[in-house]
Amino acid sequence: MSRVLEFEGIRNFRHFGEYATPDGAKVRSGLYRSGHFHNATEADRQKLVDMNISVVADLRRPHERDHEPSQWGEGLRVLQSNVAGHKEPPHLRFIREGDMSLDGVAAWMRATYRRLPNEPGNQEVFAAGLRELATHGAEEGFVVHCAAGKDRTGIFCALTLALAGVEREAIYTDYLMTNEAVDYDALVPMVQKRLRDSYQRDVPADAMRLFLGVEADYLDEAFDEIGSAEAYASGVLGLSDDEIAAVRAKLIAR
């Protein structure tokens, strides 16, 4: 059965729970990841209700949220950061001014994954999301998202699964699923046109796909920066040993 769930206005929505751990346990269900909710329809909102989703962790910066306000519906607990960060989203500045060759995109993406775990706004929502999961009811749904649901979201999900004891191979499988969940044959030409119209930039399709997708070596950079999941959760995010133990206990299905 596919982990990818179809929505009318939300891209890259999928389940990131139910992975096995080496000791024979399994991560709980009800854990979801996606792109932004700006284009969510009424049918999408009703589907979230039917899925019993109660918490949304939104990793976008304030100006991203202002530019594309979320259409979540009512009754959700929302985790966000008010750290302003960059005046212009780094990815927009890059596609406007950066080296959009294949090598240039790959280098920028690797640098991005070294930067993202160290950004205060991301750290704030990472910590809040993990603390929520430490007390989250097994019957409640949890969804984390950023803009595309692949980079900031991918790091949070990788960190969460690592804390649950999931092996790296499965963590990378979940991360790389973006490349299957998103229709890049439709998305790439749409973004290419937007760049031509907005910035008078012609970006080759292969470089555009590399920019919009994910690669294993991107996540390698994030894990190199983070070190062990427990040390990062404790030393950087400020979770106590008891909180980390509670996260792990709540993530494992009973």
Rank of each mutant, 00 (worst) to 15 (best):
R3I: 01
V4E: 04
E6V: 03
I10L: 10
R11V: 01
F13T: 06
E18W: 06
Y19P: 04
A20Q: 13
A25N: 05
G30H: 06
F37Q: 09
A40I: 03
A43I: 04
Q46H: 05
L48K: 09
V49A: 15
V55P: 09
A57V: 06
D58W: 05
D58R: 06
L59F: 14
H63F: 04
H63G: 00
D66F: 03
E68V: 03
S70H: 11
Q71F: 02
R77Q: 07
V78S: 09
L79H: 10
Q80W: 01
Q80F: 04
N82D: 15
A84L: 12
H86L: 08
H86A: 15
K87W: 00
E88I: 13
P89S: 13
P89V: 07
H91C: 03
L92Q: 12
L92V: 11
R93T: 13
R96P: 01
G98K: 12
R114H: 09
R115E: 14
L116W: 12
N118C: 08
N122L: 14
G129N: 08
L130S: 12
E132V: 01
E132P: 00
E132I: 00
L133M: 15
T135G: 06
E139P: 00
G141M: 11
V143Q: 13
C146W: 09
A148Y: 01
K150L: 00
R152Y: 06
A158P: 10
T160S: 11
A164M: 10
G165D: 08
V166W: 07
R168M: 11
R168H: 12
Y172W: 04
D174Y: 05
M177C: 05
M177L: 15
Y184V: 03
D185G: 14
A186N: 11
L187D: 07
M190L: 12
Q192S: 11
R194W: 08
L195Q: 11
R201C: 10
P204I: 06
A205I: 05
A207L: 12
R209Q: 11
R209W: 00
E215C: 00
D217S: 13
G227E: 10
A229L: 07
A231C: 00
Y232W: 07
S234A: 11
G235E: 15
V236K: 13
L237F: 06
L239Q: 08
S240E: 04
S240D: 05
D241P: 06
E243K: 09
E243C: 09
A246D: 12
K250S: 07
K250C: 01
K250L: 00
L251C: 09
R254S: 13
